[in-house]
Amino acid sequence: MIKSYTDHAANERTFLAWMRTGVAIIAFGFLIDRFDLFVMTMADAVGINPEHHAQLDKMSGAFGLSTGVWFILVGVAFIVAATIRFVRTRSLLKDEQIHTTGFAMEFALAIVLAVLIVVASIPLLVSAL
């Protein structure tokens, strides 16, 4: 039996939750990156007037690509941070001394993700006005 099995199992569950979050952020980045293809295909199928088609083409250009790439990079950063956190916590669990917890990495990733979501929302807010 592994000593402190419940602590190791909790560490692994946390690691898997972080991995799931990272994969979801990456999938959302791909969705943002490729959503412009869906919008343009629907615009061609519906047959909207050329003025609106040009506006859609302008909005779905480079911004969607760059935002999608940034979400993918943040998702990869979540996976890397999860791995680092898992390995560090595992080594701290094996060491039987009392350690303080740190939250700097989690806080930094949360801030980066919040800023990225705000930046990605700006074109939607501007187009709605």
Rank of each mutant, 00 (worst) to 15 (best):
T83R: 02
L56A: 09
V80D: 04
E96T: 13
I98F: 06
D95F: 07
F35G: 11
T101Q: 11
T67Y: 05
R90H: 14
V118T: 15
L92Y: 06
I111C: 06
M40I: 05
M42R: 06
L16Q: 10
S121R: 11
D36R: 15
K58F: 09
I122T: 03
S4F: 10
T100Q: 15
E106P: 00
R34W: 04
A81E: 07
A24M: 14
L125D: 02
T101I: 14
R13H: 09
T6V: 12
R88T: 14
S91N: 12
R85E: 11
R88V: 15
F63D: 09
A120T: 07
T89L: 12
L92R: 10
F38Q: 08
I111T: 07
A120K: 07
A45E: 13
H53F: 11
I72D: 11
F86M: 00
W70M: 15
L73H: 09
K3S: 10
L116A: 10
N49T: 04
G22E: 00
A114N: 02
H8C: 03
I32V: 02
D57M: 06
V69N: 11
S127W: 05
F86R: 04
V76C: 01
I32G: 00
A24I: 11
I98R: 08
L93N: 08
G29D: 01
I84P: 12
L65W: 05
G47W: 04
W18A: 08
E51N: 11
L124H: 10
W70F: 15
F15E: 03
A9C: 03
A17D: 06
I79C: 09
P50S: 01
V126C: 07
T83P: 01
L125W: 08
M105A: 15
A82I: 04
V74K: 00
L31I: 01
T6M: 09
I48V: 12
M105H: 02
D7I: 03
H52A: 11
L31Y: 03
P50E: 01
R34H: 08
Q97H: 13
A110H: 01
D36W: 11
K94L: 14
A110P: 02
A77R: 13
E12T: 07
F71C: 15
I84S: 15
N11D: 00
L129S: 13
F30K: 00
I48H: 04
V23I: 14
A108L: 15
L93A: 04
G61S: 03
G61I: 02
I98K: 10
L65Y: 04
L116Y: 01
G61T: 05
H99R: 12
F28T: 00
A120C: 10
Y5R: 09
A62K: 01
T41D: 12
S60W: 06
I79S: 10
R85S: 13
F103L: 13
M40P: 00
F15I: 04
G64P: 01
A77H: 10
K58L: 09
M40Q: 05
R85V: 10
R85L: 13
F28K: 00
L129Q: 13
W18T: 06
I98M: 07
A114T: 07
A104F: 05
A81Y: 05
G102E: 13
L116C: 07
G22H: 01
H53R: 14
S4G: 02
F30E: 01
F63Q: 08
A82T: 00
S127D: 04
V74R: 03
L73S: 13
